[in-house]
Design a protein around this nucleic acid. Structure first.
Length: 410
RNA sequence: GCCAGGGUGGGGUAGUUGGUCAUCCUAGGGGACUGUGGAUCCCCCGACCCGGGUUCGAGUCUCGGCCCUGGCCCCA
């Protein structure tokens, strides 16, 4: 038997309805904040992804040649495509741009809990504005979107300038290494590494810095920085709004294009892959041939949010089923048409069996049964039976529709 | 790429030191039942992940592969 490709999933209706429900909540929050949806191609020229991340990521991607021999890749993420799109078509639009996307991405990696080879990201990009207020907006939006999904999470916010200020004397390559240790909170590894390089004196201050949880302590270690006022303003805005967060100067993010604020959000109820969101302030447009443009954004791992929620069952929708005798079929078809026109989910019996059997089937899935036979047809009525209470009544079609429409989901 | 544990009908399971027709529950289909449901009874459907090896004989032992779950690495 054929199997689905490793790391991919099939979704049955029960799961799909839950996913659409959560996706819808995320879209709604983004809409209320003035963000509008965009869409980019499922695959792009390979260069788009290697320009920024190097050739090394090729082995983590689905790469192929098209029939013209052009190197292509299924998108492994959406920030680069969105910024490519901005450079191509968005340059002349009034700034700032508020865009969001919900789309699938592909990475050739070892599947784990909350990590698949095809996965969905919900993300926003705020393009063309460079301010503490913009950064605060993005963080607040992230908080509100995740809150709407009902999961529990914690927000960690950092700024790359903080660690960088202590490393100004260190060559770029070694800085990167050090940031990796800090990001993982691997202090032993850090200590060994710094000792081997003869920079022992840095170790204590770096560890102290990444352990700081308020700005005064941070600046006591770093001293004055050019970004001090900007950082102070960001956190002061966040404090004003009362949004819960943890200051975390150790956050490094994996990529070089981040320039300032960086933040990550972690969910409870997940395994090792517990990060559900990552983002920050970055500059990417100039790499794709555009003007140097400040941007800020984040991406949510949608599948991880769904894992963190757990299976809560699909949202209930009122359903009516139509059971009929052969004499009533024409009238039953008309009734079904009217129920559907009124927005009611309505299933028409296809078994052509006895009423007993039709009702038996309906009792498992439907909230209401519409029983239609010769009598109903002759009087242009319907018999509406509430399958939960067992109460049934003969009604006109409009009466039946308003009875069903007015009922509450169980 | 690495490590550990797994893979028996659609879902969940039993299967002894290798030895009849591979167990049970559930789901699904049909019937008893052509104007009133959930119950009951009966019937049906349907599985040893794939391939090689050992053996008279493999669901069971062995090797390789595939896939699943979790962890490492990585994480744009």
């Amino acid at each position: 038997m054929l199997q689905k490709p490793r790391g991919t999933r099939d979704f049955l209706p029960d799961e799909m309805e839950q996913r659409r429900e959560i996706e819808g909540r995320m879209r709604e929050v983004a809409r209320r904040w003035g963000y509008r949806e965009i869409c980019t191609p499922e695959f792009e020229e390979l260069d788009l992804f290697t320009i920024r991340s190097g050739e090394g990521i090729i082995q983590e991607m689905y790469v192929f040649e098209d029939k013209g021999g052009r190197p292509m890749a299924l998108r492994p993420e959406l920030t680069a495509p969105v910024l490519r799109m901005y450079v191509n078509e968005g340059k002349t639009l009034p700034k700032p741009l508020r865009w969001y996307y919900f789309a699938d991405c592909f990475r050739y990696e070892r599947p784990q809990k909350g990590r698949y080879r095809q996965f969905w990201q919900f993300g926003v990009e705020l393009i063309g504005v460079d301010s503490a207020l913009a950064e605060a907006e993005v963080i607040m939006l992230a908080e509100e979107i995740l809150s709407s999904t009902g999961i529990s999470f914690s927000i960690h916010i950092g700024h790359l300038a903080l660690v960088r200020s202590l490393l100004s004397e260190i060559p770029e390559q070694e800085q990167k290494r050090i940031r990796m240790f800090l990001d993982k909170k691997n202090f032993d590894g850090l200590s060994d590494y710094l000792t081997s390089k003869g920079w022992d004196d840095l170790c204590t201050s770096l560890i102290q810095l990444t352990s700081c949880r308020n700005l005064n302590d941070v600046f006591a270690i770093t001293g004055d920085l050019p970004e001090k006022a900007r950082i102070g303003e960001l956190f002061s805005i966040l404090d004003t709004t009362g949004i819960p967060y943890t200051l975390d100067p150790g956050i490094a993010r994996g990529l070089d294009y981040y320039t300032g604020m960086v933040f990550e959000i972690f969910a409870q109820n997940l395994g090792t892959e517990n990060q559900v969101l990552g983002g920050g302030t970055y500059r990417l447009a100039h790499l794709f041939g555009g003007e140097d443009t400040p941007s800020c954004g984040f991406a949510i791992g949608f599948d991880r949010v769904m894992v963190a929620r757990g299976d809560q069952g699909p949202p209930h929708q009122i359903m009516a089923g139509i059971a009929y005798t052969p004499d009533g079929r024409d009238w039953a078809l008309a009734v079904a048409r009217e129920f559907r026109a009124a927005g009611i989910r309505t299933e028409f019996d296809l078994s052509e069996r006895s009423l007993t059997q039709q009702l038996s089937r309906l009792s498992k899935s439907a909230d209401y049964a519409l029983i239609i036979g010769k009598r109903e047809k002759e009087n242009s009525l319907v018999t509406l039976k509430n399958l939960r209470s067992g109460i049934q009544q003969e009604l006109t079609l409009p009466e039946a529709i308003s009875e069903v429409t007015g009922s509450e989901p169980r």
